[in-house]
Design a protein around this nucleic acid. Structure first.
Lengths: 337, 337
DNA sequence: TATATTTGTGCAAACGTTTGTATTAAATAT
DNA sequence: ATATTTAATACAAACGTTTGCACAAATATA
C-alpha cells in the first residue's frame, strides 16, 4: 500500500502547522479564507483522505450504525436494508449489516461485533429462535440507542417499528366478504409468533363484524410455503370442505393454493378467491391480491428513529413505537365482482 | 453514554502496566499464563470492549472491506451480498455495503466513503451509467485490492468474477432446439451492455451449430420487462410471425410472453416454448425454464478473491479472472417432449 | 561462583486526528 | 505613541491501542 497522505504532510508542504490544516479542513471560523483555500487545494493535489479511525478515536464516536437482520437475501429484509441505507447515507452515517441466520448464537456474535466496532446505535429484527433479550443484553447495558423492527419481543420495552398485522388481515378479510365470499379458509403461520397471531385475530374480527360465524376448522396452521399451500388445498378438496375463499398469511401458500385450484379446474376468482400477505414481487406478476408491508418505509422509519436518538446523545427512557400501516392490494385473484 | 473501560483501567485494577494487559489480551507468548488468566478475568468482569478505532489506527489497516452494488434490494445483488458477507465473516472481516443507485455520481461518492473508511479492499459491480474507470480511479491510485463482478468494464484489466453468459445462452438455445423448437425468437437487453451481447452470441452460435439459419428479425432488442415482453408477443402475433419458441434474456420478459400467449390461448410449451434467464424466484414457482447464475457463489468467489489479495498485502499486477458457469434449469415451459 | 540465557514485565513512542491554550502579528482604541 | 483588542496561527496534549526496547528476576551454562 502506498503511504497515506496525512494533515502533517500537507502542513509541511505549506510551511504551516498541522492544527491549522485540521481546522482549515473542518472549515473552522478561526482560519482565514486564504489559508483555507490553499489547504483545500493542496489537500486535493496530494490526494488527501482523512483517516477516519483517527477521527473516530479522537472524537469518541462513530458515524456508523449497525443493522441485524435474520437474512440479507430475503425480499422483505433487503428492502428494509435499502430503506435504512438511504436514510443513514442522507445523514452521513454508514451501516454495518449483519445476518443472524435465524440463530441466537449468530445474533449474539453480531451484537459483539457491532459493539466492538463502536456503532452509534443498533437496529434489529430478532431471529425466529430468539425468545428473550439475552442475546442483546449487551446493547442495553452499553446504553446505545436501539430500535427493533418487524419481529420484536413483546415483553421488552424498546423503540419499535412494527407493521399493523391485525389491520392488514382485517382488511383482506373484509374485502373478501364484500366481494361475496362467505366461507373463508385461513392459512396461518405458527401461532406462537405474534405476527401470525395478530393476523388471525384480524381475520376473526372481520368475520365477527360482518356476522359470519367463526369456524375453527377453517384455520389451517403452518401452511406458509408453496408446497404446503398445495397440500392444504388438496386436503380440503379431498375432504369436500365447502369453502369459497382462502386468505393465506403468506404469499407463497396463496400461490400454492392457486396452482392447486387451477390444476383441479376450479376458477380463481370466480369460484374461489385467494389472497396472500406480504406483497411479494411475484404476486404483482401473477395478479394475486396481497398486503403491502412497506418494508422500505419500515427501514426508513427505523433508521430515522434510531438516528434521532443517536443525535440527541442522551439515552432517554422514553421509547417510541412506530406503527406502519399496511395496504391491501386488490388484484384479480379476489375480484369476483 | 457510559464511560468505556480501557486497558488502562484494567491495568490499574491489577496493579500492572497497560502494555501487559494489551499483550495478555492478544495472547502474546511473552506473557505468563497466570497473568493472562487474571487479565482475561478482569476484562470480562469490567465488561471490556476493545476500541476498534484505536486498534485500527495503530495497526494501520482495517478488517473491513467495501462492497458497491447498483441496488441492494434486487434478488441478484442481495444474493451476492449474502455470499460476500458469509465469506468475509468467516475470515473475520466486516463488510460496508454501498449502493450506487445506477448512478456514476453515487458510485464516486461510495468510493470516497469507502476509502476514507480505510477499507482493506473493494468489490464492485458497476452502474449501468458507468462507461469508464473514472469513478473508481481513486481505488486504483490508492492501490488497494479491487475485484469487479458481473458487470465489468471490458477495457479495464482487473480482478473479475463474471458469469459465462455466452455458455448460458448457448445451452438454453440448444435445449430449445433439442426439444424440437426451430423458430426461436430472442428477446434481448440493450446490446451495448456486454452481458446481453454475450447472450445473443451464444444464441447465434447454437443456431449455427445446429444448422438453423439466423434470422435478424427474430432478435427483439430492449424487451426485458414483463410489459415489454407482453407487447413484443402482441406484436409478433399481430404481424403473424411464424415462431415456435422464445428465449428471453431476462425472466420478466419471459413471464410477460407466457402471460400474453396464455391470453391468446396459445399453449406453453406445446405450441410455443419459453425460456428466461437469471432464475428469478418466481420462475421456479411458475415452472419457467431459466438459467441459474449462482449469485451467492459469485459473491463468495469475489470475496475469497479479494481477501486473498488483501491478506497477501502486496498488490501484484497479476489479475485473476474467475468465471462462474451458469446452469440451465429446465422446467415445464420448454418441455414439449 | 560468575556469567549467559531465558522469561516476564514496564516504559515510552507511535498511529492521525481534534481541540484547549499560548503565542504572534496586525488592527484598533486610547 | 502606547495600550488594548482582535485575528490568525502554533504548540502540545489527548483519544486507546500496539510494539520495540529496556530491564529485572529467574534459570541455565560454564
Amino acid at each position: 500500500m502506498t503511504k497515506k497522505v496525512t494533515i502533517k504532510d500537507i502542513a509541511r508542504e505549506l510551511n504551516t502547522n498541522y492544527s491549522t490544516v485540521s481546522r482549515a479542513l473542518n472549515d473552522s471560523p478561526k482560519i482565514s479564507d486564504a489559508t483555507k483555500q490553499s489547504v483545500l487545494k493542496q489537500a486535493k493535489l496530494m490526494g488527501y483522505q482523512p483517516n477516519s479511525f483517527a477521527q473516530k478515536l479522537k472524537k469518541g464516536y462513530s458515524n456508523t450504525i449497525g443493522l441485524i437482520v435474520p437474512r440479507i437475501n430475503r425480499v422483505f429484509f433487503s428492502n428494509v436494508i435499502h430503506g435504512v441505507e438511504t436514510i443513514a447515507k442522507q445523514q452521513g452515517f454508514n451501516v454495518i449489516i449483519c445476518q443472524s441466520n435465524e440463530s441466537v448464537k449468530d445474533e449474539e456474535d453480531n451484537v459483539k461485533t457491532l459493539l466492538s466496532n463502536n456503532v452509534a446505535g443498533i437496529i434489529m429484527s430478532i431471529s425466529k429462535e430468539t425468545q428473550n433479550e439475552s442475546s442483546f443484553q449487551e446493547i442495553l447495558t452499553n446504553k446505545i440507542p436501539f430500535v427493533m423492527f418487524d419481529r420484536a419481543l413483546n415483553n421488552l420495552v424498546s423503540n419499535q417499528v412494527v407493521n399493523n398485522n391485525f389491520k392488514g388481515a382485517y382488511e383482506v378479510t373484509e374485502h373478501l366478504i364484500k366481494q361475496g365470499y362467505q366461507k373463508i379458509i385461513h392459512f396461518s403461520g405458527p401461532l406462537y409468533i405474534n405476527i401470525y397471531q395478530d393476523r388471525l385475530n384480524g381475520y376473526k374480527k372481520a368475520l365477527a363484524d360482518y356476522q359470519i360465524a367463526f369456524n375453527p376448522d377453517f384455520i389451517i396452521e403452518n401452511t406458509l410455503t408453496k408446497d404446503k399451500g398445495i397440500a392444504a388445498v388438496e386436503e380440503l378438496l379431498k375432504q369436500k370442505v365447502d369453502f369459497d375463499a382462502i386468505f393465506a398469511s403468506g404469499d407463497y401458500s396463496a400461490l400454492g393454493a392457486i396452482l392447486c385450484l387451477r390444476q383441479h379446474h376450479i376458477l380463481v376468482p370466480e369460484q374461489v378467491g385467494v389472497a396472500g400477505f406480504a406483497n411479494e414481487p411475484f404476486t404483482e406478476l401473477l395478479d394475486i391480491t396481497s398486503v403491502e408491508q412497506f418494508s422500505t418505509d419500515m427501514g426508513k422509519s427505523a433508521a430515522s428513529l434510531l438516528l434521532e436518538k443517536v443525535q440527541r446523545k442522551e439515552i432517554s427512557d422514553q421509547y417510541q413505537n412506530i406503527e406502519i400501516l399496511p395496504q391491501l392490494i386488490i388484484r384479480k385473484s379476489t375480484q369476483k365482482l
